[in-house]
């Protein structure tokens, strides 16, 4: 059993790491073709990623879209999660399902929906179309993190504020909201990272005029390989790993991912 555990873990780690390692190796290859074993060492592909205006523009565009759409997603999720937990709304299950549904369905459906929607309005090929489409699609993530935080919040805290004379608005601003900030940040981060990597929605909504980074990578792949793709990939991997490692260091990553506190204590003791 112990041996099997080691084998399964090793297979999974190899499976997850394998592609990343190969890409990292290709990205520092001196020559412009993919070669194995690599020949020479060069960081020129990383330099090109920043100096080439087309790559730089795509990276910046993707960062703008990810930031704006993640903020918009949180702004949609926060009042929804708050109201469904605070008031007894009769339609609560329906409204919660409405918030969960976009992310549950295959993204091509949201993608096509957003395309026909913006076509119908005549407002075509604009960056804000992508931002709104991403915000709706990824609003499910902050909705889940904020709802979980609302659920685990001690109800006596806002109650105490109310008893001491604070009105609903003051209670929300001074008690509930500060307690929700961590879940808002994690929801934002999840939406941000996934938006940065999203392809099909961005492509169908405005793929020919707003070239995001994933679209740029895919287009470059179509016209043949350049090691710049590998360099960009490595940077993305580093960004994601850094963000999640910071979570692990400054927050309780395992708790956030839903681990049981008691089990965690035991795991701690067993170390």
């Amino acid at each position: 059993m112990r041996a099997l555990r080691v084998v399964v873990t090793a297979i999974v780690v190899a499976f997850l790491l394998g592609p990343l390692v190969v890409v990292a190796v290709v990205s520092i290859n001196e020559n412009r073709y993919m070669d194995f074993p690599p020949e020479g060492f060069s960081l020129s592909w990383y330099a090109q990623m920043v100096t080439d205006p087309a790559w730089r523009a795509a990276i910046l565009r993707s960062l703008v879209i990810a930031t704006a759409s993640a903020a918009l997603a949180v702004s949609i999720a926060l009042p929804l999660a708050y109201a469904l937990r605070t008031y007894r709304v009769r339609l609560a299950p329906v409204l919660y399902a409405l918030g969960i549904l976009p992310f549950m369905l295959p993204p091509v459906i949201s993608a096509l929906g957003a395309q026909v929607f913006w076509n119908a309005t005549g407002h075509i090929g604009r960056i804000e179309n992508v931002i709104v489409a991403h915000a709706i699609f990824f609003s499910t993530l902050p909705l889940i993190t904020i709802s979980l935080a609302m659920e685990s919040m001690d109800p006596s805290l806002p109650e105490a504020a109310r008893t001491m004379g604070a009105d609903q608005r003051t209670t929300f601003r001074t008690v509930t909201l500060p307690l929700l900030v961590p879940s808002m940040v994690t929801g934002f981060a999840a939406a941000f990272v996934l938006s940065l990597n999203e392809y099909i929605i961005a492509f169908l909504v405005a793929g020919f005029s707003v070239e995001t980074l994933p679209i740029k990578i895919f287009n470059s792949l179509r016209y043949g390989f350049t090691p710049t793709i590998a360099a960009v990939t490595v940077v993305f991997i580093l960004i994601a790993t850094t963000v999640f490692s910071l979570f692990a260091i400054f927050g309780n990553l395992l708790r956030f991912l839903g681990a049981d506190p008691g089990v965690l204590e035991r795991a701690e003791a067993g170390r």
């Binding site: 780690v13 997850l16 790491l17 592609p19 990343l20 190969v22 890409v23 990272v193 996934l194 940065l196 990597n197 999203e198 392809y199 994933p214 990578i217 895919f218 792949l221 793709i229 590998a230 990939t233 993305f236 991997i237 994601a240 790993t241 963000v243 999640f244 490692s245 692990a248 990553l253 395992l254 991912l257």
Partner: peptide, 18 residues
Amino acid sequence: LVLVLSSLSLSEVIVGFS
């Protein structure tokens, strides 16, 4: 879990390329 989360956040285009 950091490894799992990092590979989760990779774009399909990057995974496909890798």
